[in-house]
């Protein structure tokens, strides 16, 4: 029957669906240490982060999925509890954690203040709470510091280390201020151990062999424009590399121009009669053609305005992708 060829089965060895250039592209992508998955709210960053993690595992990587936004989605998708700052094993070679800036700041202060007595006094004081909340960017710096420490842990050969850290970033605005922060802070803070650490972060983020950004977007006006804008910012201002732009929820391209003419003709025939199944089917097809045409405008725009690898992720016609469906996305 007609629908059979839409059910793709590739659970076993995952090699078949990747073409050779894609395969070498993926190899290169997963040879990095740090991937920031960025995009506007609602474009599917979390789903793509998980799909990427799953794909990286196929390339023999041990992956840490890092949640730094304000929602706890990753844990529940894996049917596990809400992630904490301690990495939790989610599935084979995939771990998940959440950055907790306050805990990080506490640990950091204890590490840098020599006297344990004073360090305790600091971290337990209301002043500390206050500074943690109110100091511009301090929480974000702690977030970044945590990422950096996980990155470092591999070369320092600590017990739980990861080949690849995938950061499910908050929505673009916040994520942008996060990535801008090292540059901003270098100008703000004149001295102290934080400056040294921020410089290291800067170096890590701007090292294209180690760190990259993956943009996730939709083939719609706002997300597409925002992605293009962010792409330019990343290149010109952040000097970070955008390794790819993933266009999510792309409708299948089924009908050619001849089909469209035929459908319109058939619909005209039926319009003369009462609504019937034919009408609903034809109407649905025309709507989807219209939608797909609009999507193409934004796909073309993204392709023409970015020089990074562009990948279209097909729409699955469901609100709740299962974990195995997510695995098949990339």
């Amino acid at each position: 029957m007609a629908g059979d060829n839409t059910d793709v089965h590739h659970h076993k060895e995952y090699t078949g669906s990747l073409t050779e250039p894609e395969d070498s592209w993926a190899k290169q992508l997963f040879s990095r240490r740090l991937i920031f998955v960025m995009g506007k709210g609602g474009v599917g960053k979390t789903t793509v982060s998980i799909a990427l993690g799953k794909a990286a595992v196929r390339y023999k990587k041990k992956v840490l999925l890092l949640e730094i936004g304000d929602t706890d989605a990753i844990g529940s998708i894996f049917n596990k509890k809400i992630l904490t700052e301690v990495p939790l094993k989610l599935s084979a070679n995939i771990w998940g954690a959440r950055v907790n800036p306050k805990a990080e700041l506490t640990a950091y202060t204890k590490a840098y203040v020599n006297s344990g007595f004073i360090a305790n006094r600091i971290t337990k004081s209301r002043l500390f709470d206050y500074l943690a909340e109110a100091t511009p960017g301090l929480k974000e710096v702690m977030c970044l510091g945590r990422i950096w420490r996980w990155e470092r842990s591999k070369s320092e050969q600590l017990e739980n280390t990861f080949d690849l850290i995938i950061v499910d970033a908050p929505a673009t605005g916040h994520a942008l201020s996060l990535l801008r922060l090292p540059d901003v802070l270098i100008n703000m803070i004149r001295g102290g151990p934080l400056v040294t650490q921020i410089r290291r972060l800067q170096n890590l983020f701007k090292d294209h062999r180690k760190t990259c950004i993956l943009l996730v977007t939709l083939p719609e006006e706002l997300p597409a424009n925002e992605a293009i804008e962010f792409y330019c910012l990343a290149q010109d201002e952040l000097h970070m590399q955008v390794a790819a732009t993933f266009i999510n929820c792309v409708y299948p391209l089924l009908f050619d121009d001849g089909d469209v003419l035929q459908i319109k003709h058939m619909k005209d025939q039926h319009d003369k009669n009462l609504p019937n199944p034919h009408h609903a089917i034809l109407e649905t097809a025309l709507r989807q053609i219209k939608r797909r045409n609009i999507q193409q405008i934004y796909i073309d725009r993204i392709r023409s305005k970015t020089t990074s690898h562009v990948k279209e992720i097909p729409f699955y016609f469901t609100n709740d992708l299962s974990l195995s469906e997510i695995e098949e996305l990339l």
Partner: peptide, 30 residues
């Protein structure tokens, strides 16, 4: 059968069927 008296080619009716099924799947999910 639905389009039996149409001159539509079978490939097209198959595409129409896929499209309609997708829509139904989506509307059920919603």
């Amino acid at each position: 059968e639905l389009f039996h008296n149409e001159s539509a080619d079978p490939k097209l009716t198959e595409k129409l069927s896929i499209t309609y099924k997708n829509y139904q799947k989506m509307s059920e999910s919603d």
